[in-house]
Nucleic acid binder design. Sequence first.
DNA 1: TTGTACGCGTTATCAA
DNA 2: TTGATAACGCGTACAA
Lengths: 385, 385
Amino acid sequence: MPSIDEVAARAGVSTATVSRALRGRSGVSPETRDRVLAIADDMGYVASSSAAGLATGRNMAIGVLVPVVHRWFFASAIEGVDRQLRARGYDLDLYSLGGHGTNRERVFHRSMLRKRIDGLVVLCMALTDDELAALHALEQPVIVVGGPVEGCRHISIDDRAALRDATEHLIGLGHERIVHLAGGGSFGIDFSVPRLRAAGFEDAMTAAGLPVGPASTLFGDYEARTSKDVVARALAGDPAQRPTGVVASSDEMAFGALLAAAEAGLRVPEDVSVIGVDDHDFSEVFGLTTIRQDPIAAGERAAGLLLAALEKDAAVPIDQPATEPHELVVRRSTGRAPVLAGAAQGAGSGSGSGERAARGPIDRTGSRIPSRPVGAGLSRTRSRA
Amino acid sequence: MPSIDEVAARAGVSTATVSRALRGRSGVSPETRDRVLAIADDMGYVASSSAAGLATGRNMAIGVLVPVVHRWFFASAIEGVDRQLRARGYDLDLYSLGGHGTNRERVFHRSMLRKRIDGLVVLCMALTDDELAALHALEQPVIVVGGPVEGCRHISIDDRAALRDATEHLIGLGHERIVHLAGGGSFGIDFSVPRLRAAGFEDAMTAAGLPVGPASTLFGDYEARTSKDVVARALAGDPAQRPTGVVASSDEMAFGALLAAAEAGLRVPEDVSVIGVDDHDFSEVFGLTTIRQDPIAAGERAAGLLLAALEKDAAVPIDQPATEPHELVVRRSTGRAPVLAGAAQGAGSGSGSGERAARGPIDRTGSRIPSRPVGAGLSRTRSRA
DNA sequence: TTGTACGCGTTATCAA
DNA sequence: TTGATAACGCGTACAA
């Protein structure tokens, strides 16, 4: 509440000295420094951000642009960014597009231009060309977490490899009729992450000589609800034809798949295996096998790189690759493919199923969390009344 | 990027006129106004927040203080606050305490005092006395969403009534051995919401003449994981003794209960009923009966009240009650209490169970979402191989 | 209706 | 090591 003059007056020095002392600048004798600090602290003085910002050109704040906040990935990444920022004395301004809304316009052409922030972290979003131009017009360092954005450095897992690994996990367990439960770009805007993940799925399938067709993709739209419905439909068919493995592009979608299986009376993993991507907060309780990523760490790292660039007064170098690790976490939702007598296969050519099935469960990366002896999966038959 | 002088120069007027025109002040001829607006827009001019803030004392930004962002309630409330703020041209500064950390100190004694914000929305938190004092020292309007905070107006559901309703729903279905799956204050700091909810549970139980003892409370700590473990233990006992109904103080905990039941081989709701509080994003897919609340709406409303106070240049009036609605949403996780031959009851006195059970399922509030004919619950016996 | 000039609270430059 | 003082970019009385 007090201003710097009041502190200066009480300390019997000039405002310049107070400023220097408080900011740890050199050129202040230890005695006056300590005295000023004590007095400022006593008076509860904190420099006004607006005034300091005006004078220095730095706001000690960075913006975080998100499509929505209440999804696991975004909420976690925000948490990570915040952690790094707070530790380094920066504030965080949140720009949420909150669904479709008209606030996109306001955010891009007003809020972000008010010079309240020194840099921007963009979380995994689909952007229009216009918005992309607005970003660059910011003339501030920008870094992206989650998906490639043209002209910006981005931090993310190798989405393609992630889905390849997930798919290979099921293939290694002998599965052949595998479907990909895919997400999609929201807002009808083109976005590359879903495509990369789909490509990873196809990589693994074709490499194993397994058929990939239109029927091998289910569209879950990154939602548990939608996923449940679409998987339920896929599971309803002929046992000899229906998929024995589901590779979901996100854990939320995998949850939907799990519930669909349970309601269809199918056992997991005996009848159908499900693997996701994320390692969502709920995945462990669900016993969901998944490809783990850590958005909190990614957020921290992104903010760290941004701040580094800021201190050098430069743009975030775009050249260096910045791939976050992902790892397979084996839990209870995946297991050996069921052996069906006389199972007819779609259009498959190639390698006999026997060979693959014979390999048995392989935890290539090793399971981070020891597979617990918890007897049943989700849909286990009841054993008592 | 351009400053107001450049706009003024290009428009051939003074900076004062530009300022007036841009802010919609009177005293500018329509022609010059339009011309200035056009030019400003063309140049992409946006007033610097620091400079404007310094000059006016208003920052057009409000702070949101949260314990963590990646929980459903907080993420949703943030979304709501953001929506309201953005619509009214305000920015949102996020202050996350991110778990325990030392940043509590930094947030309260540094960030929040930098005069970047005009008001504060506090999301459901346990605060130390010191922190509470810091809040009041802000001398800015403050409003709380979620739980009562001394000296601040707060927006929340009637937590006690909510749990009473939840419990009565189970009682109405004939349940007698009901446990409360409770949350707790984090950080070891006293917090009233868990207490209010526990009280609501006890209200309903005692009103129905049902016994409430230490054994009727399980501590789930607001986590699915913990809840699953503790419920699993409670469900493991003698079928004639174990609870037939679980009232969870949050949906996340209810999910844990659901999974525990499934893994124990119990059917929901035939063997055990589960009801939660929240109507979490996943609750519908889970078929979870719950007491719905809408944190997005609460956030919007809170921000609205805060802005209203701001415009009157006053504190948020603390007197007016501001209770958000809650409602019972009946889905598939609750049903009639199982009838057990020779079931022994704990310490129960009073009213015969027959009478209550005879009443059958009652949807007092009516189910918002029509109970779907989806055959099975989570743990249904498989019907096909 | 428009322009001039001062103040907002800090930081930074330059002398002392 | 310190202290005046001029920016920083904008809003707004006040004067024109």
